[in-house]
């Protein structure tokens, strides 16, 4: 049995020094790829995730297309070098396939697919470096990439995980807190309409704890949304002509 590290000290500080309701530093950049119709890169703590959006484009295979709306397809993929452990396998795992499905479904009613019958909109998510909470970071970046592609959205979606460590509800679990904690609870929320588009949970929580988690998530979503807006606006104020990605861009505490 491995030693379980102390996740919360006497002053209520977490391993990385954060308070219980504090987010890790985050930074988002929109428009980092030349070939994709829309793209975004997010650094969230130690997570580095790249999202590309193509479409609306011709739906192949044809039998998947619908005469009423665009097909929204999503692929979440982890690079074999993304974790500090040994070199992983490339290709889809059971976990990545589940995440592909639920992230796709998060955006199914957010994207106005009815505008583009018979077409497909493809979302590709590459996790280059993982440190817990990749699906929330991916959902947050995907919204930015979709907006960058000019795909009509009813709302912007931001996501964050809450969880339980040392019997306390905390915001934005890091990898260690997820591994050794008692519960992980990723939540994606439409910022304007306050609809919950993604909700997953494992471990044990009381109803009171779920309520506290939701309160924390709703408060954090507002902050994350402001970063999404900033990323999209920067794309219009910068004079940079070439699109490029800087994997070590600075992150900010919010």
């Amino acid at each position: 049995m491995e030693n379980i590290p102390k996740l919360l000290d006497e002053q209520g500080r977490r391993i990385d020094g954060r308070a219980v309701d504090e987010l890790r530093p985050i930074s988002i950049k929109a428009g980092v790829l030349n070939n994709a119709d829309g793209s975004a890169f997010i650094r969230w703590g130690n997570n580095k995730i790249l999202v590309a959006v193509y479409g609306p484009r011709e739906c192949i295979p044809k039998h998947e297309s619908s005469p009423y709306r665009a097909q929204l397809r999503c692929r979440y993929n982890m690079a074999p070098f993304c974790s500090l452990a040994e070199h992983g396998k490339s290709g889809p795992s059971r976990r990545s396939m589940e995440l592909s499905k639920i992230i796709g479904e998060t955006f199914e009613k957010v994207v106005i697919t009815e505008n583009f019958p018979k077409t497909a909109i493809d979302i590709f998510i590459d996790v280059l470096q993982s440190d817990g909470g990749t699906r929330c970071a991916a959902v947050t970046a995907t919204t930015v990439a979709l907006a960058d592609a000019g795909i009509p959205l009813k709302d912007m979606v931001a996501a964050v995980a809450v969880g339980k460590i040392e019997n306390k509800v905390v915001l934005d679990l890091s990898k260690d807190e997820d591994n050794f904690g008692q519960s992980d609870n990723p939540i994606a929320i439409g910022v304007r309409d306050e609809q919950i588009f993604l909700y997953q949970m494992d471990g044990l929580l009381t109803k009171e704890e779920i309520k506290e988690g939701l309160r924390m998530a709703f408060a954090a979503i507002k902050k994350i949304h402001s970063l999404q807006l900033k990323a999209l606006e920067e794309n219009y104020t910068s004079q940079e002509h070439q699109k490029f990605i800087s994997l070590n861009m600075p992150t900010f505490k919010i």
Partner: peptide, 27 residues
Amino acid sequence: MPGQEVGQEQKNALTYSDEKGVYATVI
């Protein structure tokens, strides 16, 4: 930005509306 309120009356291909208001859908 998408989801941002853009007044009460406008309705066209670039906006989305519900009972509360009219919102932009693209940047």
